[in-house]
Design a protein around this nucleic acid. Sequence first.
DNA 1: GCGGGGCGTTGATGCAGATCAACGGAATAG
DNA 2: CTATTCCGTTGATCTGCATCAACGCCCCGC
Lengths: 227, 227
Amino acid sequence: MFVRKATNRMPGPYCLGDLGMTTGSNPIVSLNEFTYKKGTEIYREKEPAEYVYQVKTGAVRTYKLLTDGRRQIGAFHLVGDIFGLENGNEHRFTAEAVVKTALRLIKRQSLELVAESDPVVRRNLLSMTTSNLEHAENHMLLLGRKNALERVAAFLLEMDERVTAMGIIALPMGRLDIADYLGITLETVSRALSRLQQAGVLEFIGPNHRDIALRDRGRLASFDLPA
Amino acid sequence: MFVRKATNRMPGPYCLGDLGMTTGSNPIVSLNEFTYKKGTEIYREKEPAEYVYQVKTGAVRTYKLLTDGRRQIGAFHLVGDIFGLENGNEHRFTAEAVVKTALRLIKRQSLELVAESDPVVRRNLLSMTTSNLEHAENHMLLLGRKNALERVAAFLLEMDERVTAMGIIALPMGRLDIADYLGITLETVSRALSRLQQAGVLEFIGPNHRDIALRDRGRLASFDLPA
DNA sequence: GCGGGGCGTTGATGCAGATCAACGGAATAG
DNA sequence: CTATTCCGTTGATCTGCATCAACGCCCCGC
């Protein structure tokens, strides 16, 4: 039931680049780039946090597991997002590529060195942590108190602000990932999406039902946070 | 069903003190102390964050509400805990006194002023935010993927490390607060506690069933994170 | 000290979502 | 191009927790 397929580790990173997060004239920090195949592990929970990552292409999921395989995805990281930033010394989630994904790697040590002297970088680092905290706080409300339809509606609205090109949400992740993010099952996700489609709130564009056009954002929002 | 009693605001704070968080010789920051009656609001979600608070006595709950009254408590703040620290300008939770509570108030502005020049304070502030994030991340796993018994077991183990005096957990909050923290109902909390009592894992000490002695922490832990 | 509301518990019942199952179409490997 | 596996959907059934209800004790105010 809760069996998960083993994921392969990828070998280490290789290339160089620059730090997208800093503003204007900042010293160069040690940078690499690397590509991960779909489903491969980027780092594992409790592993020492050596790098911070930025998504160049693709998508990443970060999650925690219970001993019997139940999984809670904490966040999806899409193009441009930075993840893997820890203030402690080890990662608190496992990170995997949802699809073929290119990452920019920043050596944590070098980043901390820059932060030491640059108040702007320091501020950005803090505001990243704060954003993560805020997201987690909102997600606690969703996981603790929203019903299935509300969760899926909230998910679509979140993705609508993040993966939309020309009004179409192109979901990189499958139903199981969505389910494990929302704390429900993949069947329940599927049923909720079907209901929203039948209600005329959304439309599936492609044949694989991962491309979604929102037809009525107002009504979708009304499925979340009900009166 | 989801009706909540209105909570009264208390007037502003009055007294002075010192900053418990700083290490050793630090400049004095603007400090006040104030007492809140049981159930009174300390600040409200979306309100500008003017102060940071430290619990001197009592306990505080911070929560978010849905429009129909469903409530998710994000954290309980017990003696010594600091809460209300926001990096943005407004509070993201509502805070209420669980019982009669004495708080130390620190003007946010003065704290930021100190942080500007003092790397130690800065580090402490960051590590506080990180602790909050870590707690929220663990709580997402609980809310998304654990069953009722596992949630209550996890709650007891968390409280065991925080409110224990002489091996006895003295819970300041009622069953409804626990339920809204764990994303279940108060009846389910009560039933889980009864089950744990009958299993010999815990014992109610007083007559009001808020004082609990853990008799078998190992078995309690086995109810959480099951194999 | 006494009365009453609040809180915790327990039982009966209901239901949203989990689980089990089957199917069809699409992506992928060869 | 074809075979195979994966993925999303839908239906049937089950179940853990929510809901509804009742009761008794404790605690608080008077």
